[in-house]
Amino acid sequence: MSVEDTYFDSLFKGNDDPWAMRDRWYEQRKRALLMACLPRRQYRSVFEPGCANGETSAELAGRCAALLCSDTAAAAVALTRQRLQGQPHVRVEHGRQPQQWPAGTFDLIVLNELCYYLDSAALDELIERALASLSADGQLLACHWRAPIEGCELDAEQVHRRLRHKLPMTHLLQHEEPDFLLDLFSRDPLSVAQHEGLA
């Protein structure tokens, strides 16, 4: 069974940064790596489910024409809205994934520290919904902490193995560290250098 909403609600009770995304060097560095791994300077439309308090959302907002963020915790939605207020190209919604996957087409979907909270069936549904909403040249970036998380059926290795198996897309990038895994999948098989005529 996927982790319940009440778990995430409890994390945000009296704490606007339960994973210390703002202050920990680990999180700051990982976020910088995540952004550097995106092969395009600018995206048309980005979806970030599981946005937490909006630390990664704030970085993504500068790289796209339209950003949709969502989270299952109402407090996380409120924090992200506050963080990104005054940016009309950003929308933040309250919703549980994959059940409340949004309508629309995205050329980038960012699954950041999200998928191990799902059970196997929910992860398969999320992958199907992501594929259905990706544009013809769409990309999917996944990044997950490798240590086991109590109460979760899946770990980072299982999540990324499943993504590699089920996504019929070019595997453009893989970054592996003792702490986390990062993979980028793309319907556009060309590298950055190929796009610029250098390879």
Rank of each mutant, 00 (worst) to 15 (best):
P49C: 02
W25F: 14
L38G: 00
D17M: 04
D17R: 09
K30Y: 02
A52Y: 04
D16L: 06
A32D: 10
E27H: 11
P39S: 11
P18V: 14
P39H: 07
M21H: 13
C51R: 02
Q42R: 15
W19R: 03
R31T: 09
R29K: 15
L33Y: 11
R40Q: 12
P49V: 05
R31Q: 07
Q42M: 14
S45Y: 05
R31D: 02
P39I: 07
Q42K: 14
C51T: 14
W19Y: 11
M21Y: 12
A20I: 06
K30G: 03
R22K: 11
D23E: 15
E27W: 05
N15W: 10
L38K: 00
D23A: 12
Y43W: 14
A32Q: 14
Y26Q: 08
R29E: 13
C51G: 03
E27D: 11
C51L: 04
D23N: 12
L38Q: 01
M21S: 04
R31C: 01
Q42V: 11
K30D: 00
A52N: 15
R24I: 03
Q42F: 08
D16V: 14
P39W: 08
Y26L: 11
P39Y: 06
R44K: 11
L33Q: 14
R29C: 09
R29H: 13
C51N: 08
R44D: 14
L34P: 00
Q42L: 13
P18G: 05
R31S: 03
L33R: 14
G50N: 08
R31H: 10
D17L: 11
R24N: 11
D17A: 10
R22G: 02
Y43G: 01
W25Q: 11
L38R: 02
F47M: 02
Y26P: 04
A32M: 04
A32H: 05
Y26A: 09
R29M: 12
A52D: 15
W19V: 05
C51M: 06
D16H: 14
C37N: 09
D17V: 12
